[in-house]
Simulated scan of single mutants.
Amino acid sequence: MVTLSMGIRHGFGLFNLPITSANGWGRETYALAIALQNLVWGFAQPVAGALADRYGPFKIMVIGGLLYGLGLIGMALTSDPFLFNLAGGLSIGIGLAATTYSVVYGILGRNVSAEKRVWAMGITAAAGSFGQFLMMPLEQGLISSFGANEALIYLGLLASLMIPLAFFLRESNFSANQGGNQTISEALREAMGNRNFRFLMMGYFVCGFQVVFITLHLAPYLKDMSLKYPEINGATVATTALALIGLFNVIGTYYAGVLGQRFPKRFLLSGIYITRSVAISLFLLIPLSATSTYVFAAVMGVLWLSTIPLTNAIVAQIFGVKYLTMLSGLVFFSHQLGSFCGAYFGGYLYDLTGSYQIVWGIAIALGVFACLINLPIREEPLVRPAMA
């Protein structure tokens, strides 16, 4: 489920130039659709999580797989920016909310022991990363062979496979009342009033900004820079770099889960964010080449989605698993606010200045901020008053 849902969406950066060129759009138009997708994904995630915690995740995942596939096909069939935003932004955004980490992690939280929970979450995040490695060359191959629009239709058919996969994740023993009598509204008030939860949300905003900016704008950035550095001309370097990010993140997310069992997760998160800032800085300072791009992609790959198992494991550790899907969705909403900003402002500031340099600088500064904001997080479980 996560391999398909995350793998397909990581390739949207490859469609940026073909679709904008074919439709006569500026990069801001396409960037807005993907930014809306991430924003809708963020808004819908807590709702999908609450519904999954209340009624079980099965129906939520079926609806999500259907909307995901229809959204991809809708993107292929329209050249109108408004309809493109509805398909690529609204439909796929809701589909992602119902088929990605928060819903799947809710299933893991209920069915995997606490001793192995962060490890299992790391395995699942690695599956999403493998999807990126698997789908990048496939999507580029479809674009090269059939064109962007037909490639989106084929991806829509592939996304529909998530519907039968939902049947394998159906929990026959699901109970809506796991772990006490706390209500949804009480859980929300408790989380939002907790400083650790707020710090996690601020750090996750940065993760979304950096990841989606690079996913969506690395290929156009390399295309622009090929005028100065002919070695990186063509889509091959960008496709290979994005695939390498997915490949190395299989390693990064797996070991994030392993290390999260042994070391304080807040320190691991801080280390990930500051290392991202260092990697981006070196990428911009060193003369650009295919080799430097691939090294940057490999380093970023190790750090890419490694925040996901660590962040969600902290949520489960502090608040328990009863409303894990909803609370993971809520903290993920902050991630998607960052994703919206990374996607949209990448396109907006490029159209405004003709360069991505300002956005790269913002990504570096935010990484330093996220490093610092994760350090004071306390990972101890909440002690709640005894219920009558």
Score class of each variant (00 low, 15 high):
Met162Ser: 00
Val250Tyr: 06
Ala191Glu: 11
Phe248Arg: 02
Asp224Lys: 09
Ala235Met: 13
Ala187Ser: 14
Leu169Ile: 08
Ser160Thr: 10
Glu186Arg: 09
Ala241Arg: 03
Phe213Gly: 03
Met201Gln: 15
Leu218Arg: 03
Leu222Asp: 05
Cys207Asn: 14
Glu190Trp: 03
Ala187Arg: 01
Thr215Phe: 09
Arg195Phe: 09
Leu157Tyr: 12
Ala187Gly: 07
Tyr154Leu: 09
Ala219Val: 08
Val211Leu: 14
Ile163His: 10
Glu150Gln: 12
Gln210Trp: 02
Arg198Ile: 10
Leu242Thr: 07
Thr240Ala: 06
Phe199Glu: 04
Met192Thr: 11
Gly208Ala: 03
Gly246Trp: 07
Tyr229His: 13
Leu169Asn: 10
Leu218Ser: 04
Gly193Cys: 05
Ala191Trp: 06
Gly234Glu: 09
Tyr154Met: 09
Ala235Asp: 15
Ala243Lys: 03
Lys223Asn: 07
Leu244Ala: 08
Asp224Val: 12
Asp224His: 01
Met225Asn: 02
Thr240Gln: 09
Tyr221Trp: 13
Phe199His: 06
Lys223Arg: 13
Glu231Asn: 08
Ser226Ala: 15
Ile184Leu: 14
Pro164Glu: 07
Ala191Ile: 03
Phe213Asp: 07
Arg198Leu: 13
Gly208Cys: 09
Gly234Ala: 12
Leu247Ile: 11
Asn177Met: 07
Phe167Gly: 09
Leu227Asp: 14
Lys223Ser: 11
Tyr154Trp: 11
Glu186Gln: 15
Gly179Asn: 06
Asn173Ile: 01
Gly179Phe: 08
Met162Gly: 04
Pro164Cys: 00
Glu186Lys: 05
Leu155Cys: 11
Ile214Ser: 02
Met202Lys: 01
Tyr221Phe: 15
Val211Asp: 01
Thr239Cys: 07
Ala159Asn: 08
Gly180Thr: 02
Tyr154Phe: 14
Leu157Arg: 02
Glu150Val: 11
Leu157Lys: 00
Met225Gly: 07
Leu218Thr: 04
Asp224Tyr: 05
Phe168Cys: 10
Ser172His: 11
Val206Leu: 04
Ser226Pro: 00
Val250Ile: 11
Pro230Asp: 04
Ala235Val: 12
Asn194Val: 01
Phe174Gly: 13
Thr239Phe: 04
